[in-house]
Computed example of a mutant assay.
Amino acid sequence: MKFKTQLSIGVGFFTTIVLIATALIISDYFIKKEIVSISERLKTIAEIVAISIDGDAHSRLSENGNYEDGDYRSIKNVLNKYLEITKSENVYDIYTMARSNNKHTLQFIVDVDTGSTASEFREDYDTSDFPLMEAAFNQPKAEYQLLEDKFGTWLSAYAPIYNAAGKYVGIVGVDASAESVHHVQNTIISHITVITFLALIITVPLSWFISGFISKRLQQLTEFAEQIKDGHYAHDEAAIVKIEVLASQRKDEIGFLALTMSHMAEKVAEREAHLKEKIKSLHIEIDEQEKKKQVDELEDSELFQTLLNRSRNPPSAAE
């Protein structure tokens, strides 16, 4: 497998992991943000509904009234009106509650829900697992996560109901069903998924381009290494020129490597030239020694000695 292909696969795999991780982080962020936004809207609705309720009528109803009283019908009409108005805000149910004589227990007073999840008039509700319901008698509160009770799974918000004297006499609860929250979550996830998929499609040619860009530079370094291996160090060589341009253009690790290899080539060329000069001098010295040896051998030969003696003692005319 070519280096370019390996690099492309590596870059693509790394980019895919990063994109998926980023998508998960982003989707989690936006889901939490949207849940907080829904909770805050529910709290605002609860505050508006609480202001619209006659606190004195609610106090009478919770203490001595029944579901056939005019106070009950009046409060229920208010709740029904706001339920119709806020259906676009994913509101499923609106109800009121009052304190009971038991600790961590509230009582349902009016509930507009008429389905299987509807509460009964003055039905007790254990708030041990829902401390914000108790705290809502002092100021508006909102849950920022889905909570499950015997009626189902909900995202809820609460606001206090005050009487004419400014004393709290109950709370308004506003619920959004888990299905509506999950719908919002799924919408966000689907949008993030589409964006991630499109990004992955772009990643394929981008990875190939990046790997080609890097491998091209490495190929230049490889060609330069081949030039050095073959003993070509002259700076008019095409590969040498390319490597010097690469070293001057890039300021990263590849550029540094190109610069280092260029300097290495210069040093190798200098050392080779110096070595050649030494070898040439050595050859000359060896030649001189060989010549001297041959002369010595010639001088020591019997023929040379005879000729030398004759030259020194020429024969007389009589001889």
Results as ranks from 00 to 15, higher is better:
I195S: 10
I195R: 09
T196F: 06
T196Q: 02
L198R: 08
L198M: 15
L198E: 11
A199H: 02
L200C: 08
I201L: 13
I201F: 12
I201G: 11
I202V: 15
T203E: 05
T203D: 03
T203C: 15
T203Y: 05
V204L: 14
P205M: 05
L206K: 02
L206H: 06
L206Y: 00
S207R: 02
W208I: 09
W208K: 11
W208Q: 00
W208V: 04
F209A: 08
F209G: 11
I210G: 00
I210Q: 01
S211G: 01
S211M: 05
G212N: 09
G212D: 08
G212E: 10
G212P: 05
F213Y: 10
F213I: 09
F213P: 06
I214C: 01
S215D: 11
R217G: 04
L218V: 01
L218W: 13
Q219M: 10
Q219K: 15
Q219C: 06
Q219F: 09
Q220V: 00
L221R: 12
L221I: 13
T222N: 15
E223C: 02
E223V: 11
F224Y: 11
F224E: 01
F224T: 02
A225P: 07
A225D: 12
A225Q: 14
E226C: 07
Q227S: 10
Q227T: 15
I228V: 12
K229M: 12
K229P: 04
D230A: 12
G231W: 13
H232L: 11
H232Y: 08
H232E: 14
Y233Q: 04
Y233P: 07
Y233D: 02
A234R: 14
H235R: 11
H235L: 14
H235K: 13
H235E: 13
H235G: 07
H235Y: 06
